[in-house]
Design a protein around this nucleic acid. Structure first.
Lengths: 256, 256
DNA sequence: TGCTGCATATCGTAC
DNA sequence: GTACGATGTGCAGCA
């Protein structure tokens, strides 16, 4: 479980300190949008939704592709608004109403050429109490650490977040013969995770006090390519069932 | 360059066929949101922006974190709206106005408990002409494939997207001596890209018909750390100039 | 501040 | 449809 609400509260305090609260601004207008930065992207004139959030971010939405805007500028950034020049008015077959230049600290720029505006309003949202999440990788790791029996009888936990020079191994177990087993936990197992575990195993097996250390790649799903690479490296793949693990957990709670 | 506009046009046709055009719906309202699916997430009651797009997707926005909503359901999904029950009204210290259940084909559900509504309006956006992008990796790959001379005189292309068991190598060349060279193309060269190329080279050099295959890591920018790792692996780094390549391309067009 | 790793990633594309 | 890599990834945690 995790709380994400601190930022909203902090921003509200800042706003109050400065004597005003920035609202969310929603605009429905015809517009042309040009982004230049890590790539260049161009949107011809059409009617779109423009959202300016209290954090200064700007996003240009069409009526599809879920929450992803067509174009955007993330905070922190600054919005400069000006009147269109005569040349600009002459260059477009549109009634221009404003030119926005939204810039960040780098050299990225979002240029919005606004045409006819159908709607333009500000809304105060106030304090965001924050999101509570449950069921991400951290939780899988805790459940697996609490249930070494999932991997084999006689296994026990050495420790979670077992430290190494290049970062902590998710879980270290000792198997029924007392051999060390390093486990990398992912929600979805992909090649990167196998690479990560490989680096840990190289390091751990360089330590005469630990070796031999073998590896297990544990995830709710494992991509075929990751399986291939794991097999090449002599790493075992283990599919884990979050629901079943939670069940296990509750069963143990009842037993003890 | 790429056009992303087909979807919008297709959807408009579908809407016309079915006799109506779905608008974007914007709501400012107090609400509680509960998501259950790949994880569970909970948002306590607060005033937020709720966006329902023409594709059916629903997203719940706070006034920060740029374009990322606090909670969402992507299309395709269905929205069922009902009156709150007496029990529900009694359970909340809020004036409830509606209960939404948004479901997709899997077992994901976004439940929105609506309180006082400050604003609720529909807006027609019409046809989205589409986004034009330029300067992405695919373009670089095409340009390099067309210009083997960038790497050396007498080089020629074997093929783009050269297939291997763990995925396609971006470009395979043969150099002036007939030796194979595998090229990994990135916009920004980082360690991951070197790792990827390393895996390809391991595999390719295991094939007696191909070996020896050496590697080139080609990118517009290459991070110092990536250079170090590449050097360790005997991989050559090649900075490519997108503008110059385009110029090359045009020069060749003029020559032939 | 910069690097690392996760994400309800989303999105396009090849097979 | 599934698998896989790219992304203006965004974003949080941490050194």
């Amino acid at each position: 479980m995790r709380e994400d609400g601190a930022r909203g509260t902090q921003m509200l305090r800042w706003s109050l300190w400065h004597g005003y609260i920035k609202p969310v601004r929603l605009i429905i207008a015809r517009c042309q949008v040009d982004y230049s930065g890590r790539l260049t992207a161009h949107l011809p004139f059409a009617k779109r939704l423009i959202m300016v959030k209290a954090d200064g971010s700007v996003s240009i939405h069409a009526d599809d592709r879920a929450y992803k805007p067509l174009n955007w500028m993330s905070a922190p950034c600054t919005l400069a608004e000006r009147e269109p020049t005569e040349d600009e008015r002459a260059a477009f077959d549109e009634e221009l109403t404003a030119i926005w230049s939204v810039k960040n600290k780098g050299d990225d720029e979002l240029r919005v050429t606004l045409g006819v505006v159908e709607f333009d309003n500000n809304f105060e949202l106030g304090v965001e109490p924050g999101l509570v999440k449950d069921g991400v990788e951290a939780q899988l790791q805790v459940l697996l650490a609490e249930n070494p029996g999932v991997f084999g009888a006689g296994w026990h936990l050495v420790r979670r977040e077992y430290p190494t020079a290049i970062g902590p191994v998710d879980i270290m177990y000792r198997d029924e013969n007392g051999a060390n087993v390093a486990v990398e936990v992912k929600r979805r197992g992909e090649i990167d995770g196998v690479e990560q575990l490989t680096r840990y195993l190289e390091l751990l097996n360089a330590d005469p006090l630990l070796r031999p250390v073998r590896g297990i790649f544990a995830a709710q799903q494992i991509k075929p390519q990751a399986k291939v690479v794991a097999a090449e490296r002599g790493i075992e793949c283990k599919l884990v069932d979050y629901e079943a693990l939670q069940g296990n957990d509750h069963a143990e709670e009842r037993l003890f």
